[in-house]
């Protein structure tokens, strides 16, 4: 009698757990709405020669050129869209034109913006490598940085900077004067508008500011007026990491394409994820490894006007190029 009761109880618990798992799956694990991207090619390899990298950490595309932050070589390398080396600039140091661990990059109106992690500044270059301006310096005050990880440009030319160790995102005028910040300086948090080591930023086609909230394993979005808009990444986007679609294991880079869709480098998951601006999961590509279409920690992502996606494969010391499958290119989705 007692055994039958226990068996029935066990069965009911099993059914309840299965139901719960199904609910969680449906609620928190979205299905792809596009096919994955196709691997086209890769270039690089570890070293110091032109075309080789020692910790590539950032990438940006300007027209027909790809700019790569070659961090331990303290230089920027420039390639054509097929990966042929064109030129390089920068060397180790803190003087104008020199670099201290360049990280995520941004390009706008013929200028390259470089987040310098060790020099605690944003350096602006002409696309030919001519140093144009230095913005910010070390510290935690307004307009100062403690290891900036990434930079983006608003439509009015303001800089948006992921201020990694200050646990905040700053908006500055082009001359470096302070406009506003998101997050409390030096304070880690998991609530809306709080950060846990922000690594990069991107600006949407409507002015939305997207923040790669690195170790909160999520993306946060703020309207152009600065108000918190939405967030996503794992259950309730509250610092839950995982390998499922739409989840993250440390977001390290963001890029927005011409249609306002967002690409995220999902570092420890060895993949790039693509979302619509409202955070809807669209597709993902890449998996761990050394071969074609594989990543050993993907750290940065950029998208070209022709919809090619360039992803930096940190551990394999290379840049990879991807293309959307033909049907997804012809099928503009919201």
């Amino acid at each position: 009698m007692k055994l039958r009761f226990l068996i029935r109880l066990g069965a009911r618990i099993g059914i309840a757990l299965g139901f719960l798992a199904a609910v969680i799956w449906l609620a928190f694990i979205p299905s792809p709405k596009e096919p994955p991207y196709t691997f086209v090619g890769a270039w690089g390899g570890k070293g110091h020669a032109p075309g080789q990298f020692d910790d590539p950490t950032g990438i940006a595309v300007a027209g027909e050129e790809v700019f790569v932050a070659d961090s331990r070589n303290d230089r920027i390398q420039v390639f054509d869209l097929q990966g042929r080396f064109k030129r390089q600039f920068g060397s180790a140091g803190a003087a104008p034109g020199q670099l201290g661990r360049p990280m995520n990059l941004a390009v706008r109106d013929g200028r390259l913006y470089v987040a310098e992690y060790v020099n605690d500044r944003i350096q602006v270059f002409g696309l030919d490598g001519t140093p144009r301006a230095i913005i910010g310096g070390p510290g935690s005050g307004p307009g100062q940085f403690n290891a900036p990880g990434g930079v983006a440009l608003a439509a009015n030319g303001d800089l948006i900077v992921a201020d990694f160790y200050n646990q905040r995102v700053q908006q500055l005028k082009a001359d470096g004067s302070f406009v506003r910040q998101w997050g409390r300086t030096g304070v880690i948090g998991i609530g809306a508008g709080q950060f846990n080591y922000p690594t990069d930023v991107a600006v949407g086609t409507d002015g939305t500011v997207f923040v790669a909230d690195g170790y909160n394993d999520r993306i946060q979005a703020f309207a152009a007026d600065g108000a918190f808009s939405h967030k996503w990444g794992g259950p309730l986007a509250m610092n839950v990491f995982g390998p499922f679609p739409g989840w993250f294991a440390t977001v390290t880079s963001l890029a927005v394409d011409g249609r306002g869709q967002l690409f995220a480098a999902d570092f420890y998951n060895h993949r790039v994820q693509k979302f619509s601006a409202d955070g809807t999961f669209l597709t993902q590509f890449g998996s761990r490894g050394e071969g074609r279409g594989r990543f050993e920690y993907v750290i940065a992502v950029a998208v070209a006007a022709d919809e090619s996606v360039f992803a930096v494969d940190f551990g394999n010391q290379r840049v990879t190029r991807w293309r959307p499958q033909a049907d997804s290119v012809r099928d503009p989705r919201p």
Binding site: T57, R101, Y117, A147, G149, F164, T199, T252
Partner: peptide, 8 residues
């Protein structure tokens, strides 16, 4: 594992 950590 990540360069943000290593460089920090």
């Amino acid at each position: 594992a990540c360069p943000f950590c290593a460089y920090g």
